Simulated assay, not measured.
Amino acid sequence: MVDRIPAPAVGAEQRLKELGITLPPPPTPFGNYVEAVRIGKLLYLSGMLPVIDRKPQVIGRLGGELTADEGRRAAEIATLSALSAIRAELGSLDRVTAIAKLGVYIATSGDFRDHPQVADGASDMLAEIFGPEMLSGRIVLGVASLPLGLPVEIELLVEVAE
């Protein structure tokens, strides 16, 4: 366990500009749920998919139709959707004070073993934008399938400034 005082995410919006990253429009639900729920200082995000404007960007399973590099790119796109959902809920990514947990679910063929490489697409994106001191614990799971035939779904739990 790492007991640390999270560094404020001041500058996350500026880092996006410096990196030349434009967030996609905030995602909208594909069912009867909401994309984000705030309880106190915690913001829980629903599963975020590699979808832009309700259009899947990558379809298939890792180790089947897709390579680990393609899965990593799907994780990056899903992370951008998550950041867009956070911004829509909070008004600014600079209000994020800590990333509490990252979950990465990967649709795989039975013998795929490069889960960490795929999940690093999400972790690396978060570290670039919020700083490496904001990295969190994570869980990475291989699953048989994900919604819409997508290869990756991420979930985030973040702490936010009041």
Rank of each mutant, 00 (worst) to 15 (best):
M1K: 02
M1F: 11
R4W: 02
A7S: 15
P8R: 10
V10S: 15
K17I: 06
L19S: 12
I21D: 14
T22F: 13
P26R: 03
P27D: 08
P27N: 05
T28I: 07
F30C: 08
G31S: 12
N32E: 13
Y33Q: 05
Y33F: 15
V34A: 14
A36P: 00
V37C: 03
R38P: 10
R38H: 03
I39D: 09
L42Y: 02
S46Y: 12
G47S: 09
D53W: 01
Q57G: 09
G63W: 03
E65G: 11
D69T: 02
D69F: 08
E70L: 11
G71D: 11
G71S: 11
R72G: 15
R72K: 15
A75K: 13
E76A: 12
T79A: 14
A82P: 00
L83W: 04
L83K: 03
S84F: 06
S84R: 09
A88S: 14
E89M: 02
S92Y: 01
S92N: 00
D94S: 10
V96P: 01
T97N: 02
A98L: 01
A100L: 06
L102P: 03
Y105G: 05
Y105T: 02
T108Q: 10
T108A: 11
S109F: 01
G110V: 07
G110K: 07
R113G: 04
A119N: 11
A119V: 07
G121W: 10
L126C: 09
I129V: 15
P132Q: 15
P132M: 15
E133W: 11
M134D: 07
L135M: 13
L135P: 00
S136Y: 01
G137V: 06
G137F: 06
V140S: 12
V143F: 12
A144W: 00
A144H: 05
S145G: 04
G149P: 00
L150C: 15
V152I: 13
V152C: 09
I154E: 06
I154M: 07
E155I: 10
L156Y: 06
L156R: 02
L157T: 13
E159N: 06
E159F: 09
A161D: 04
